[in-house]
Design a protein around this nucleic acid. Structure first.
Lengths: 224, 224
DNA sequence: GTCAAAAGTCAAGAAATGGTCAAAACCATC
DNA sequence: GATGGTTTTGACCATTTCTTGACTTTTGAC
């Protein structure tokens, strides 16, 4: 449920169609029509990637190697015809499976599910658990306090994610801004103060603790 | 403070300009206008390298790979326009970031600082332990005396950090001022006396020892 | 012992930083 | 384009920390 799938193919129409179909099956999809776009969309942290082998410019195999350096998830190649050489190259590049075009959509779904199941078993911990009952699930972007779900906005969660992933370390506001907003952001420091306030309030109301400690003159730290 | 940056570009004018600008920001710079020169200057042990991708002869990517075999430090590519091929190749060659020309100097500085900070965090020894039960954790900026945490203000901790990282060495007030405040001592020497007093008081109350010894007429020394 | 320079102490004011609030700007959705 | 939520802003207050200056004590030289 709610798995994210990144679809990479230079034919926009195909990505579009696949995207629709997968969405109908309850997946969250992202599409990319070039290698560059694909790399850019890795930050969506997909749970699985569908990758066309034959693309202009850098082909799928090259791209696959690069992706492997960044994230771990099943990569399924889509390919028009598969030669033995293709298969070997693909495996060597880090692919997990092949689906030859044309393929039946039912087969596609079946394979995707198989890989996600296996992946789930292997890569258990996509979550961060912190003190007594607070669970931060980074892949689902959800936070729970003893069964009960707390809701945070995007920015709020981004900040929680960053800080809680580096517990006990102090980050000044600029550093947080950089991590959450991006590089050159010339942010007013009030923005962070305000978000921290909101986060603390929500956490405090639910759990009785704010989790984020202020280190005067230095920044904030996630207390684990 | 005092980071060394190696600037590699075949355009002498550009390296010159960058060099000046970075020096204005407190960096120590070295320039190289060819790959050979760059390799030769690796022995300056730069903390960061700015590398032009498009150079005659061996290009930046090749150079990057070679450099990676020699030293570990952030490598930022400078490139006229970035194609997806560039990006991919660059990542593969071991680069850490891209800056496309023309770039704003502010952005350049921001990125350099970001990378140096990150690098520093990663390569920093996690903690310093000093005599009987006093633990100074530099990355968490926490000080413990037998389980119990002692709290210090930013300046206080900065001073502790500086002195305890160079135990048994005597530093006069100007030197401490320079190390902690950042530039040439402009401040009244009382500032340091006062901070030292506070630090000693806190340490003394917790541990029974002040740790900072006065060397009359010379300065202070951290007793290990 | 006396003296001057250096170091230590203390209290008070200045400066910096963080917290809070309300309102404006922004954005997606209907 | 109205709505409701999110994000950003600016103003203001409270608190902590930093700095200063006057004063006392210690130190080493004479």
């Amino acid at each position: 449920m709610g798995y994210k799938i990144l679809i990479v193919d230079d034919e926009a129409m195909l990505t579009e169609l696949l995207s629709n179909h997968l969405q109908d099956h309850g997946y969250m999809t992202f599409t990319a029509n070039s290698s560059d776009e694909a790399l850019a969309k890795l930050n969506t942290k997909p749970n699985l990637i569908l990758l066309d082998i034959n693309m202009p410019g850098m082909d799928g195999l090259e791209l696959c190697k690069i992706i492997r350096n960044h994230i771990v998830c099943p990569i399924l190649f889509l390919t028009a015809r598969i030669t033995e050489q293709d298969k070997v190259n693909g495996l060597r590049a880090g692919g997990d499976d092949y689906i030859t075009k044309p393929f039946s959509l039912r087969e596609l779904i079946a394979r995707i599910e198989a890989h996600l199941r296996r992946d789930e078993r292997n890569n258990r911990p996509p979550e961060v658990v912190t003190s007594q009952g607070l669970i931060i699930n980074l892949s689902d972007r959800k936070v729970f306090w003893n069964e009960r779900e707390l809701s945070f906005s995007k920015r709020e969660f981004d900040i929680i994610e960053f800080l809680s992933s580096n517990p006990n370390q102090v980050f000044d506001k600029e550093r947080i801004y950089e991590a959450v907003w991006g590089y050159d952001a010339q942010g007013d420091s009030n923005v962070i103060k305000e978000h921290i306030r909101k986060i603390r309030a929500k956490l405090m109301r639910a759990s009785g603790s704010g989790y984020i400690e202020t280190v005067w003159g230095m920044g904030y730290r996630w207390e684990k």
